[in-house]
C-alpha cells in the first residue's frame, strides 16, 4: 500500500509496521507530503529508500523481525547507508548495546550507543517535557513513554538534544534516534529533520 501524495521527491519512506505506533509516523510523514510504505515482509522493503522504526514493545518487534525474516535484509540496508530513524523502541532496536533487554533480543547495532530499557520507570513515571533541539528556534514538546535511556554514547555520535543530563536525540551517519515520541506531538520538526536527510 504505497500512499503517494504530491511529493516533491519520489522517495518512499518505509515504516516498520510489525507492532507499535507505526500509523502515527505514517500520519506525520503524510502531512509532510512524503510517500510511505508499511513494512511487514521482505517484499515491502524492496520499494523503500528510508525506514522509520516506531515506538512500541521492543521485545515484540525483535521477535517479529526474525519470524518475518526482516532482520538480515534491514541490517544490510542500514549498513549500505539507508537513512533510518528509530523512536523509543525503535531506538532500542538500533542501539549497539541493550541493557535490561531480553537475552534473545536482537538489535541492529547501527548506532554507537548503550541503551537501557524502561529506564525512566513504569507508566506512572511517563511524562512530557519541553526540550531544546539543536537548530530549532523554539522548544519541542517531547513525550516520554516508559522511555529508554541512552547511558553511553561514542564521541562520534552527534548529540541533537538533551533533557537535563540525558541525551534524548542523537545522530550517527545515516542513523537518527530519539528516546521520546515525536510521532505523538503535533510538531513535525523532527520528522522534517529526518526527511531532509533522504
Amino acid at each position: 500500500m504505497v500512499r503517494v501524495s504530491q511529493s516533491k521527491s519520489t522517495k518512499v519512506v518505509g515504516v516498520l509496521a510489525l507492532q507499535g505506533a507505526f500509523n502515527r509516523h505514517t500520519r506525520v510523514l503524510g502531512e509532510l507530503n512524503v510517500a510511505t510504505q508499511e513494512v511487514r515482509t521482505p517484499q515491502d522493503l524492496a520499494s523503500v529508500d528510508a525506514l522509520v522504526m516506531p515506538g512500541g514493545e521492543s521485545t515484540t518487534m525483535s521477535q517479529l523481525l526474525e519470524s518475518s525474516e526482516l532482520f538480515e535484509p534491514i541490517k544490510k540496508m542500514i549498513h549500505e547507508g539507508m537513512p533510518v530513524f528509530g523512536t523509543c523502541a525503535g531506538m532500542i532496536l538500533l542501539a549497539k548495546e541493550i541493557i535490561d533487554g531480553r537475552d534473545d533480543q536482537v538489535s541492529f547495532g547501527a548506532i554507537d550507543i548503550d541503551v537501557q530499557r524502561n529506564a525512566y520507570g513504569r507508566q506512572i513515571d511517563s511524562f512530557e517535557a519541553e526540550i531544546e533541539v539543536d537548530g530549532f528556534n523554539t522548544p519541542f514538546q517531547a513525550v516520554f513513554i516508559r522511555a529508554p535511556r541512552i547511558v553511553k554514547a561514542a564521541q562520534s555520535v552527534e548529540v541533537l538534544a538533551e533533557f537535563g543530563v540525558e541525551i534524548v536525540l542523537a545522530r550517527q551517519k545515516n542513523v537518527l534516534v530519539a528516546s521520546f515520541h515525536p510521532e505523538l506531538s503535533p510538531d513535525q520538526r523532527i520528522h522534517e529533520l529526518f526527511v531532509r536527510e533522504i
Binding site: 509496521a17 507492532q19 507499535g20 517535557a129 513513554i145 543530563v165
Partner: peptide
Amino acid sequence: AKRETENTAKTSTGSMLVKRGLAEMLKGG
C-alpha cells in the same frame, strides 16, 4: 553547564497525551 544539572526541567506526568501515548504503543500487538 547543562550536563551538570539534574533533570530539574518542568515535566508533567499523567497528561492525556502521556496516557493515550502508551495505548498508541500497544497497537498492532
